[in-house]
Design a protein around this nucleic acid. Structure first.
Lengths: 145, 145
DNA sequence: CCATCAGTTCGGTAAAATTCCTAATTAAGA
DNA sequence: TCTTAATTAGGAATTTTACCGAACTGATGG
């Protein structure tokens, strides 16, 4: 759960970061930012499109895909690639995801389960790790019964 | 690095598991199993198709997709969903993946980096975790220079 | 060893997800 | 306000993955 104050702060932070990097803040981008910044359910691109279209009916698919890609490239949101869909997460604080193999349900879990070292660090001979994505896969409560 | 003896053991184990579950061991499936069991580079479905077609020229896309799905469903290989592609890993022993954000390169790393508890375990109110996928994302040595 | 038949394959088609293209529009700086 | 480069809409193309019907085949029982 995240408060409206935090969401507003996020929106501003996302928009500021893009403008600082010389990108234009269009009406469409701002609305997409507002949608993804406040989303608690890790929507996919199509879901973002559907939601923002209620406010911006002419919004095109491509604009949503590009806006989300820009946000990901600037490290403002995370792209979560699951076997079912590619979803987006506005929360970049340390947490992990539980994914149900049978229904695709995705839920946040705390960092208590899997211990991840502080980023960034270097794996000798491989590269520099900036972000660690942990997916806990199994069966959710609903599908168990 | 994995020896030819281990690979042969894997092929047999994969084939036996499917036959035990009542599936038929066709020529096509066996060749796909042989290909993925010995793959050290986490190929995607299309790559598996291309490789097996050198031996089985009439092999269809669909057959490869179905065979890989069957192997995943039986827990014999892992489906790795990355931002660039869906890849497959015949190694189900505890290890993790480094993925380069800039070139897509995927490499195995040991379990030293991120500590994962023994599966399965239950996350209260969420579900039962069977498998943990850890992706270490950053920049590989090649892209750093 | 043969007949049977459910499971499997092929080839084509379809669906879904993502990207590309071009003309028209618009945000931002001068 | 004017200028211009970035951005958008809409359609079309591409890519990945799944579906379908007809033909085929591995395994089982006789």
């Amino acid at each position: 759960m995240i408060g409206p104050k935090m969401i507003a702060e996020r929106e501003k932070r996302f928009a500021d970061a893009l403008v600082t990097d010389g990108l234009r803040m269009t009406h469409q981008r701002l609305e997409i930012i507002r949608e993804i910044a406040g989303a608690e359910d890790h929507p996919d691109a199509d879901e973002v499109l559907r939601r923002v279209r209620t406010r911006v009916p002419t919004l095109s698919q491509d604009t949503v895909y590009r806006a989300l890609a820009v946000l990901v490239e600037h490290g403002l949101i995370a792209r979560i690639t699951t076997p079912r869909a590619t979803r987006f997460d506005p929360d970049r604080s340390p947490h992990q995801h539980f994914i149900c193999d049978s229904c695709g349900r995705l839920e946040d879990v705390g960092v208590d389960m899997v211990k991840v070292p502080e980023s960034p660090w270097v794996v000798p001979g491989v590269g520099e790790v900036r972000t660690v994505y942990v997916q806990l896969c199994g069966t959710c409560m609903g599908c168990r019964s």
